[in-house]
Write a protein that binds this DNA or RNA. Structure first.
Lengths: 343, 343
DNA sequence: TTGAAAGCGCTAACAG
DNA sequence: CTGTTAGCGCTTTCAA
């Protein structure tokens, strides 16, 4: 049941000109009707609408925006992994704010690949997104410099390198320091660190916070219990088992993000006297599992970043600023097990 | 440091024409250089590129696509909630396939609102997405009928109403039936059902599967233990507590999706002899928590739907088809607690 | 109330 | 190797 204009099984989409011809009016009149503009007689309007429906016409917003000079209403969000709840919560927070301003979120993921990051950014800019929210994977963002004063760009979660733009971060170093101090207070001295890729700024900062706390407590040889660069649950589980097999074994673990916490938990299943555990990032069901975390609000980060974007689009040209969100320890049991009680 | 064309704090973006003028060549030559086409002398090319960089030029893909008649390279995905792992896993599965075909995923969420669904669909179509992946919230999709033969549309998770298009579903009824039968086999007769909005087709089917199993087992008055329409964890927790307070209390629970399972788990925390539990949908850490589920693969659903889209775009005009993905019971302990052992 | 002509930024077709 | 002309689908003058 293809229309007469079917080409290779695909019907050609009618243009406004065809609708106008079908209705026996000029292009402009058809345009007026379909855009709800005044000064058209009811009869004419009805005829145009009838023709549009009959042909399956749908306005081409792209062409409209090109002519009217209006930019698109979409805002790009670049994250590393769509399926990581941490990023999808950022996306949700941002989407709510943007939608309230009539903007649409376009999400793309990089799989933590800096080449992908750059090409996605370029592509979105060529598509003329109004603004860009970026959780960077790359290590140099100077290529975004020419956008200054053109397209508002806000970085989230990780700071930009060689680029000055609005940024929303979490206080990683202080958060990690507090989380580890929490374990030290329970009497732990041998504390294992299970971390993600150390090329990520967030991870380096959390590692630094870990070191801060250990050094402040005068613990020696804490480096022995550091396992970094596990970017998925399986690797984190392996690192955890590896730590538990050390002699003497650590009595506590600090996991540096949600993925590593999940991996560690997997490795700890069935262990009779599991080490104490504090994880960076809160996660769903952490309360049911009784896992103490260094929590913060990804939605909040998305919300604030989106609000910056909206402000910039509304003409705010104040100097770029960096917002650092606080963390807080949420004690749920796993982080309060005393060192004396482990093994 | 705005450029000379700054308007309201925003620099105007240079056009190809301006680049050409700056480089002292024609429009077409500039176009050739910036598109990497042959037959341009190195010297000219260098001059054009220099001008482009100096002006901060970025090709306008929208205009290019308009002129070349090429449709965009984006595919729209409409889901109800970006932050529900179930949907983000669908998105990830789809994105991988699409990217491999040079297509970009554009995600938008509806918050389970059918008005939102329709307006997002219309908007994406006006933006000329190449195809549409829809997890519907609405109850009538006839408005998509004119797209037949124009834009490939694939429905996921829930079937379309009054519309014939490719669809990828999960075998909800059989899955629920099997999950409940699993509980019945462990001797349970009083089984509580904690369900999501019953206007959702998936929920009605899972409810039907629940009823199938109960009736086949000759259980009477099972309706007493049915609590539907909880769409968030808090409500599901309340329904669960309500069920546990019934006299006589159910010895087992069947939760009809990931959100309700999480809510139930929250309500069950600290209960000395918790009821047996089987949940529909697998979820992260279910293994650590020892929760028996009726599992299936959301990524797979996204992948298959995206593959249908790609096939359609490549000219496949075979009749539309519905793929129903199987589920399987993953026993992890919570669903194997015998009725005799509860209270 | 309606319409004709021009042009948004770009590429295709055809000259030079 | 380079340039000129036309036109994608639409809106914006400006005129009737």
């Amino acid at each position: 049941m293809e229309g007469p204009d079917a080409v290779g099984g695909r019907a050609a989409r009618p243009t406004l000109r065809q609708v106008a011809a079908e209705a026996g009016v000029s292009l402009k009149t058809a345009s007026r009707v379909l855009n709800g503009h005044p000064h058209v007689s009811d009869a004419t309007a009805a005829r145009v609408r009838g023709a549009a429906d009959a042909l399956g016409f749908r306005l081409n917003r792209i062409a409209r925006e090109l002519r009217s000079g209006a930019t698109s209403t979409s805002v790009g969000l670049i994250i590393s992994d769509l399926a990581n709840p941490f990023y999808s919560r950022i996306a949700r927070g941002a989407e709510r704010v943007l939608r309230a301003s009539g903007l649409q979120l376009v999400t793309a993921s990089t799989d933590e690949d800096s080449t992908q990051e750059r090409s996605l950014v370029e592509e979105l800019l060529e598509r003329r997104v109004r603004a860009l929210l970026v959780v960077p994977s790359g290590t140099d963002h100077a290529y975004l410099e020419p956008e200054h004063g053109r397209t508002p760009v806000v970085f989230l979660d990780r700071p930009p390198v060689r680029l000055a733009v609005d940024t929303v971060l979490v206080d990683n170093r202080a958060g990690a320091r507090a989380g580890v101090a929490h374990l030290l207070r329970a009497g732990h001295r041998r504390i294992g660190f299970v971390g993600d890729l150390s090329r990520l700024a967030t991870q380096r900062e959390r590692m630094a916070g870990f070191a801060d706390a250990m050094q402040a407590a005068g613990v020696l040889q804490w480096e022995r219990y550091v396992r970094a660069d596990s970017h998925d649950q399986a690797t984190a589980a392996r690192s955890t088992r590896d730590l538990l097999a050390t002699d003497p074994a650590p009595t506590a673990l600090f996991t540096s993000n949600n993925v590593n916490t999940a991996g560690a938990l997997r490795a700890l299943t069935g262990v009779p006297t599991p080490p104490a555990l504090v994880g960076f990032d809160d996660f769903d069901l952490a309360d049911v599992l009784g896992i103490t975390v260094v929590g913060h609000e990804p939605e909040e980060m998305g919300r604030i970043a989106a609000e910056r974007v909206v402000a910039r689009l509304n003409g705010d040209d104040s100097p770029h600023r960096t917002v650092v969100l606080p963390t807080r320890i949420i004690p749920r049991g796993s982080g309060e097990r005393a060192a004396a009680d482990i093994r």
